[in-house]
Write a protein that binds this DNA or RNA. Structure first.
Lengths: 105, 105
DNA sequence: TATATATGCAACACTATCGTTGCATAACAT
DNA sequence: ATGTTATGCAACGATAGTGTTGCATATATA
């Protein structure tokens, strides 16, 4: 597995605190409308809506339309890639330390 | 544990592909100078140097001076926070699904 | 049909970030 | 001392992202 360009968009999406809060709310409250998600978040509807578009673009959320309401739903699948990347990074470092340790014993 | 503002800087640092590649190189090659890290990365020394400053600012790398040479070293510790955050997010979603499943059985 | 609700799209100013260039500093080598 | 190597700091233009406002669209309700 290549260690570069693995879920580049996902990393960028996670960089914004507002988007992370949206993900947390979705994971706790389940599918919600933009309004329910936006309220008490100190931002215009359009501001939050753009964040939702960013999150959907990289696959972190999906949306289903019910009449005039659109329900946003969390999709944690892309997070596995970033999680794997981070773990691989830390693991390679640990393996390196272990090699050095064996060498000097 | 609060799900917001957990290693905000680390998430932002990981959003850049150049910085992620620097981390990968450090995890594989161990402590290196800026020059060794910068070469073959399609960027000026100052460009890479700024990324190194960003990474050091959030604790992902440390630096030791040896005469006129500064060795950069990976510090994977802050990554645990982001890893935990991602896992917690996915876990909460899974638990939610399980609750719903039990409810409808 | 009218009216309210839920949403998207486009344009705008503001800010942050990126990578560069130029100059300064500090440590080695000759 | 002089030159070379390794680095930092400051300023600049370019680019990208953020949040806003205004308008348009589509669906429900009276």
């Amino acid at each position: 597995m290549s260690m570069t360009n693995v879920s580049d968009e996902v990393f960028a999406a996670l960089a914004d605190p507002v988007r992370r809060e949206i993900l947390v709310r979705l994971s706790r409250g389940g599918p919600q409308t933009t309004g329910a998600l936006t309220s008490r978040m100190g931002m215009t509807r359009q501001g939050a809506s753009r964040h939702l578009a960013t999150l959907e673009s990289c696959g972190l959320i999906t949306s289903r339309r019910h009449g005039r309401v659109i329900l946003r739903e969390l999709n944690p699948a892309p997070l596995r890639g970033t999680e794997a990347w981070i773990q691989s990074l830390a693991n390679q470092w640990d393996e390196r330390l272990e090699r050095l340790k064996r060498q000097y014993e």
